[in-house]
Computed example of a mutant assay.
Amino acid sequence: MLENPTTGSRKKGRPSEDEREDRKTAILDAAAQLFIRNGYGQTTVDQLASAAQVTKRTIYSYFGDKSAVFAAVIERFRLDSVSGSPTKADSLAETSARIVYALHSEHAVGLHRLMIAEAAHFPELAAAFYASGPSGYMASIAAMLPEPVSPSEAAWISEAVFGLLLGEQHRKRLLGLSAAPDMEAARRHANETLRILGLSVP
């Protein structure tokens, strides 16, 4: 049950865990749309509250401030992209394909364009974006690398893999010069990247 954004009225008593998750989801869904459409600086907490049908107090209680909401949007997208925390049950090839598919999507490209436009004005936001986004994806790649690999080697290899998974195709996506790949195309891109780096999986 969502709150009335004007009165803050809701069912009496503490919200259940499901209700809390529903509110968080509503806030993050609304935030992603507003940030991409209006820009980070032009989006207010009042607008977020209205779009998510919650009170400002709820947003501050659940996330802290607007920058934390933005970081949570990026983090949720990343976790959804790689199906949560990586496990050895997943393969490097499949994880890489998911990353290609996700980061070349319209949603991800919109967030990336937003961050490029806002980075100079909000450097702390840029740092949060990198920590929640690229660093997290590289950690997922590192977790999938064949053993034995030292931590320093894993860092270098995962950075190289991530860079090629984006590549010139991602630049073209940012410029609106190409369409988002389907999953089959994403897998081809990922497999070719791993082949070039000598990481092909039989």
Rank of each mutant, 00 (worst) to 15 (best):
S135L: 07
R14C: 07
V82W: 00
M1S: 14
A52W: 08
R76D: 07
L125V: 06
A142F: 12
N38F: 09
G110Y: 12
L111I: 05
V100H: 03
E124G: 09
A108W: 09
P202S: 05
E75L: 04
P181G: 13
T6Y: 08
L111V: 03
H112L: 06
A154V: 05
S91Q: 08
Y40Q: 10
D65E: 15
I99V: 10
I27K: 07
E118S: 11
P123D: 12
A93I: 10
Q53N: 14
I141L: 15
T7L: 04
R37M: 13
V69N: 10
E124S: 10
V109P: 03
G8Y: 00
L111P: 01
N4C: 06
I141W: 01
P86Q: 03
F122A: 09
L164T: 00
S200Y: 13
L174D: 03
G39D: 08
P86E: 03
E184Q: 15
D65T: 11
P15H: 02
A142Q: 12
S16G: 13
S152M: 11
A93K: 09
D46S: 13
E168L: 12
F63D: 02
A120W: 09
E118G: 09
V73L: 12
E75P: 00
M115L: 13
A127E: 10
P123H: 13
A49F: 01
E118I: 10
S178R: 07
G136R: 14
K88E: 11
A160S: 15
L34D: 05
F129G: 02
P15N: 03
A52M: 12
V161I: 14
L164W: 00
A89F: 05
A139G: 13
A97T: 14
D80Q: 09
R23D: 01
P15G: 03
S9Y: 08
L2G: 12
R10K: 12
W156L: 13
R14Y: 09
S158W: 02
I74R: 06
P5G: 00
S50W: 08
S178V: 09
G64I: 15
P151N: 08
E94G: 00
A52P: 10
A131K: 04
F162A: 04
Q42T: 09
S132K: 15
L48M: 06
A93L: 11
E3Q: 02
S96T: 01
R20D: 06
A30M: 09
L197R: 07
Y101C: 06
K12H: 07
A185P: 00
L111A: 02
I196N: 00
E19A: 15
L28Y: 09
F35G: 01
F77I: 06
R14M: 11
D182P: 13
G176R: 07
W156R: 11
S178C: 11
Y60C: 05
E75H: 05
